[in-house]
């Protein structure tokens, strides 16, 4: 497969540049392999995050030729042999160094979410929770999330509008959805989803769904149903009347 050209961002949040590298590519190599080879041979101090190298941990998120991707699951043969591969950090987060960004904001969002609280009823038995497979599948679908934050990175609200204080972002909307749709969860998060987590901010462009490496239907299965639940609670005239009458 021969020798290939790379341009990799080197620098921090204040200053940096794209630096040229070359790397010999063998069959089956992914972009992360090339980054490691460059690191070992030519750029010992080049920062990059990675762990599992199999698309399971979501550490190696970068932008490759401008597209958000997991470096470990992006094969070199996806690009034509004469194409220069450009690797830059996720744009939505502050750069720490090279391709490594400060994603701590995401951890703060997670902490704001009311955690799972199991119902105490006859289906919570000493043998565990009694739930049918069909009823947990939606929640399991969301729980495939590997927290790579690619969806957060492309979300317009976060990336372009910088409204980090108004919206938790797609990753945490599906975390909320996984809890709300858990058949044995007792907590009510609808008011928080509307007010604190900012469900109204999403305008359904589906960019998050498009980049999800786990193929989670973030928008259609997660965000839209949550928006509907908020609407049912706060804006459905019949429900408003019902609540007034029954003082619920």
């Amino acid at each position: 497969m021969g020798n290939r050209k790379f341009k990799i961002y080197r620098g921090d949040n204040t200053k940096g540049e794209l630096v040229d590298y070359n790397c010999d590519i063998t069959e089956g190599m992914v972009v992360l392999d090339a980054m490691h080879r460059i690191q070992a041979d030519d750029a010992n101090d080049m920062a990059c995050r990675w762990n599992c190298k199999a698309g399971k941990c979501g550490s190696c998120s970068v932008e490759i030729n401008g597209r958000p991707k997991l470096a470990c699951m992006t094969r070199m043969n996806e690009y034509s042999p004469d194409e220069t591969i450009m690797i830059t950090p996720l744009k939505a987060f502050p750069i720490i160094k090279d391709t490594v960004t400060d994603v701590s904001w995401n951890y703060k969002q997670n902490k704001k979410i009311k955690p799972f609280s199991p119902v105490q009823n006859k289906k919570n038995t000493e043998k565990g929770l009694v739930m049918q497979q069909v009823d947990v599948e939606r929640t399991q679908h969301f729980r495939k999330c590997i927290e790579c934050y690619l969806c957060q990175n492309v979300c317009h609200v976060i990336r372009d509008q910088g409204a980090q204080d108004k919206f938790v972002g797609p990753r945490f909307m599906i975390r909320l959805a996984s809890l709300e749709m858990h058949p044995m969860d007792d907590a009510d998060r609808i008011p928080a989803i509307k007010e604190d987590h900012g469900s109204g901010m999403c305008n359904i462009t589906r960019c998050c769904t498009e980049v999800c490496p786990e193929d989670i239907q973030i928008t259609d299965d997660g965000i839209i149903p949550l928006k509907e639940r908020v609407v049912d609670r706060y804006f459905d005239p019949v429900m408003i009347l019902f609540r007034k009458i029954f003082k619920k």
């Binding site: 921090d12 690191q39 010992n44 101090d45 080049m46 920062a47 990059c48 720490i96 090279d98 490594v100």
Partner: peptide
């Protein structure tokens, strides 16, 4: 390199 995020 420096001590800042230095994998080497």
């Amino acid at each position: 390199g420096s001590s800042q995020f230095n994998p080497g």
